[in-house]
């Protein structure tokens, strides 16, 4: 037996600069080397809140996809869905990191008042803002700002496809506009994210068509899936005050509806499916996901996601 057969194994104990870990998941801060100062004229508080919203959408959505791994109908779908979960997690990491930096800028620039980003209970140093992990693992449900669609559990593969079509068509329309954001960091995140979302939308659309125009059974399930999901659509396009505080930086969701409707109509037609006619899911005393008022599902999602991190807050991971 030759020693050189085991070089890969022996290299374990060696120090290495090789950052070619799986999928570029290196050790660096996702925004390292990028100038994250908030441009003049932009409200740092509002920017932090906006990035947190978009980051939470991706973080919680990715969690639901992660729960599908090892349960998909075919091995090839395992790699496809894992890719989408990884892409969304990557977007979440960058957006949460950006939110934390903006939060820090707000702290540094403020007269000590806690802003709308929920700084009470922060574990960051004054002026530093929280990092991606502090935001992901140590906020309670009412401080999460994702839309309720993101936290929905897919009852079957038809819901996985339908929900992903809705989410990625909406988010792609949004990110396409954010590529022109006056915040250069948000613009860069959106440019990278848009390419990924186009791929996700394409994957979801192909499956909606295959299931809609497949067997009688799959057609029935795909229609039922859309009917269940449709009440969560209107919330995606509701104008929110955070975006309104960021002219030139954020995009008003209401302006995305026409593009979204066009995409959905085309896919549903190819899939021989009917557009559902469901009433939107009501808010709670005028509030929903963007206000931190969620469905009962989010509590269980966070209990699972945050459990190991919260069990040992002094740990280093």
């Amino acid at each position: 037996m030759t020693d050189d057969e085991f070089t890969a194994y022996q290299a374990l104990a060696d120090e290495t600069d090789d950052h070619r870990w799986a999928f570029g998941t290196g050790f660096t801060d996702p925004l390292e080397g990028i100038d994250t100062s908030v441009p003049a004229g932009i409200s740092a508080d509002a920017l932090a809140a906006y990035c947190l919203m978009l980051g939470d959408d991706a973080l919680i959505y990715s969690h639901r996809l992660q729960q599908w791994m090892t349960r998909l109908p075919e091995l090839e779908e395992e790699t496809a869905v894992a890719n989408i979960a990884l892409d969304l997690l990557g977007q979440a990491r960058m957006l949460l990191a950006r939110a934390g930096r903006a939060e820090g800028a707000a702290l540094a620039g403020s007269t000590g008042l806690a802003g709308s980003t929920g700084l009470a209970g922060s574990t960051g140093l004054a002026g530093a803002g929280r990092d991606e992990d502090q935001l992901a693992f140590f906020r309670p449900e009412h401080e999460f700002r994702n839309v309720r669609l993101a936290e929905h559990a897919d009852a079957d593969f038809a819901e996985l496809a339908g929900r992903l079509l809705i989410f990625s068509a909406w988010r792609l329309a949004l990110f396409t506009r954010l590529q022109d954001s006056a915040d250069p960091v948000l613009a860069a995140i959106a440019a990278k994210g848009a390419k990924e979302l186009a791929y996700h939308r394409d994957y979801a659309a192909q499956w909606v068509v295959r299931l809609g125009d497949g067997t009688e059974l799959s057609h029935g399930r795909m229609q039922a899936a859309l009917d269940s999901l449709w009440p969560l659509v209107d919330e995606l396009f509701r104008t929110d005050t955070v975006a309104s505080d960021l002219p030139g930086v954020a995009a008003d969701p209401a302006g995305l509806r026409a593009e979204f409707d066009g995409v959905l109509a085309a896919v549903l037609a190819a899939a021989t499916l009917d557009q559902p006619d469901a009433a939107p899911l009501a808010q709670v005393a005028g509030k929903s996901g963007r206000d931190g008022v969620h469905t009962e599902a989010l509590g269980y999602i966070l209990a699972e996601m945050q459990s190991v991190a919260r069990a040992d807050p002094d740990a280093t991971w």
Binding site: E74, E76, T79, A80, N83, D202, Y203, Q206, R210
Partner: peptide
């Protein structure tokens, strides 16, 4: 090689795998 229902799916999966 890989399994796919149609050529479009095969291309998508080949890109992933």
């Amino acid at each position: 090689s890989l399994h796919a229902a149609d050529p479009q799916m095969a291309l998508h999966h080949a890109r992933d795998l």
